[in-house]
């Protein structure tokens, strides 16, 4: 890579930014040692901040991989998908894509789903609060999902794996041999991740599309109390 011996454009902020951005991205290396050091400080600050945000938002993936492997993957992700939003608490929407595209992780095929699950935990944490006033339910209306509610069907026992990595959790003797449907919701200021029966997915999809309760099969509606108890639905009162 050729050394950049210029001292940068003088008058135009746009030209200066373009020049400095090339240095920051490593597309050119300043010839002057002080500038090289300064660019390295800024590049490192930016990388560390983004990697720390990923570590904070994906604690289970971090725990599964360990510090060294996670740091390498976080760095790869930052280079491919740098933060676009200054809110680093919401950084990492595409982390699962980075994990899924990493051939070295083929022996851990559930990792991408774990990243998807943890991203839903992040979005649940910062989602809008449900309305204070209970919604009046009638059979002709749907029962709205709470803003924080999300779900993830997985071919892996993703809920059991997630729960086993929570602080203070008891490590199970074994994990289920089947996939799990994860429900992510927020109740009493806590984000909860629970496993639902696989056929509850139909109900979640129906509520997502605001299907009237009267249009749902009784077998599907049977899952409604579990969703309400988990805090997955907005507060509501029936009309009898």
């Amino acid at each position: 890579m050729p050394a950049d011996t210029s001292t940068g454009p003088t008058q135009s902020p746009a030209r200066f930014e373009a020049w400095y951005a090339r240095l920051l991205l490593g597309e050119a290396v300043p010839a002057a040692l002080p500038l090289r050091r300064a660019v390295a400080v800024h590049a490192n600050n930016a990388m560390v901040a983004a990697c720390e945000a990923l570590a904070g938002n994906f604690p289970v993936v971090h725990a599964m991989l360990g510090d060294t492997a996670f740091a390498a993957l976080a760095r790869r992700h930052v280079l491919a998908h740098p933060p676009r939003d200054p809110r680093l608490c919401l950084y990492g929407a595409n982390f699962a894509i980075t994990l899924a595209g990493c051939a070295d992780l083929a022996a851990w095929p559930w990792l991408a789903d774990m990243a998807r699950l943890e991203w839903r935990v992040v979005t649940a944490l910062f989602a809008a609060d449900p309305p204070d006033r209970p919604r009046r339910l009638t059979p002709r209306r749907s029962w709205p999902l709470a803003p924080a509610t999300g779900w993830l069907p997985s071919d892996w026992p993703i809920v059991s794996l997630w729960q086993a990595h929570q602080p203070g959790a008891v490590w199970p003797d074994d994990f289920p041999r089947h996939g799990e449907l994860a429900l992510i919701c927020r109740r009493d200021s806590q984000v909860l991740v629970t496993a639902l029966p696989a056929d509850a997915l139909s109900l979640l999809d129906a509520l997502h599309w605001r299907t009237a309760l009267a249009a749902l099969d009784a077998a599907i509606l049977a899952h409604l109390p579990a969703l309400a108890a988990a805090g997955a639905l907005v507060p509501a009162i029936g009309d009898g």
């Binding site: 003088t10 008058q11 902020p13 200066f16 920051l24 991205l25 800024h42 740098p82 676009r84």
Partner: peptide, 23 residues
């Protein structure tokens, strides 16, 4: 803080320097 990146915009989580020109 905003840098054009091969994959789109990069909001650099740091405070980048600039020449203190009139512009």
């Amino acid at each position: 803080q905003l840098v054009d990146h091969a994959h789109g915009r990069w909001h650099v989580p740091d405070f980048l320097p600039f020449p203190r020109t009139k512009a």
